[in-house]
Amino acid sequence: MNVQTKPVAAVAATTSTAPAKPRVAPVIPRESRARAIAAQVLPPLLILAVLLTIWEFAGRQPGATLPAPSQVWTNSYDLIVNPFYDNGGLDKGLFWHLSASLTRVFMGFAIATVVGIGTGLLIGTSTFAMRGLDPIFQVLRTIPPLAWLPLSLAAFREAQPSAIFVIFITSVWPIIINTAVGVRNVPQDYRNVAAVIRLRGPSYFLKVVLPAAAPYIFTGLRIGIGLSWLAIIAAEMLIGGVGIGFFVWDAWNSSNLTDIIVALVYVGLVGFALDRAVALIGRLVTRGTMAN
């Protein structure tokens, strides 16, 4: 009983002092909020300006092999300001090249998502499947994406499905492995609850395993989309046609170094956006699951 008297006394003490000093909800001044945003935004802008200055300086040296930022701006002005032009053939704005590449990535990644989650669930639940498949996957996943391209060209005899296959085979491994880990790591607590209420089979899978594994699955998807974007650029350089990868290769062949730089900036920004988009979807879908 003495256990209780102590906390009660403590509460009484705090309540007696409370009226003396009325609590006021803390008001965050507007200024400090603006300052907080500035503290986030200014450093990267500042560093970017410094880097561009150094680059500009280096690019203006006699004998410099790469163009300075100012040259990029003047030489590739059309490309920068108008991403939507289309003069037929390969002479298109960057938007069209990027959208062609993204279409391939989405198709390959969609197949990888379905196959990867499916296989991951199988490996996660069946010890036999894990023992049989895991060593094979561990070897296969180390094969660089481009090494698959000749084989897939031989198999499909066309550029488009080959590129999609390369995306698929690149991004499927992290999805499989993370899904399997997620399924294996369903907390014992949840398993116990399911056991007590006799939740079994497909409904156990849908109502407990899948939600519990969702954060892991999304980690796999996020790694997968990043790898896809890495692979598509390289694959398109080899297969040609419309696409940001081939655009870069084509610009190199016609010595348009400034076009390459513009394209690389776009590639980086799109890759960043893809990563953030998958992360955002993951946060929305798994809301609640992580926070415990």
Partner: peptide, 13 residues
């Protein structure tokens, strides 16, 4: 035989 677990074991989602 319903169990009240020590760490509540509610499904967080």
């Amino acid at each position: 035989r319903a169990v009240v677990f020590q760490n509540h074991s509610l499904l967080p989602w």
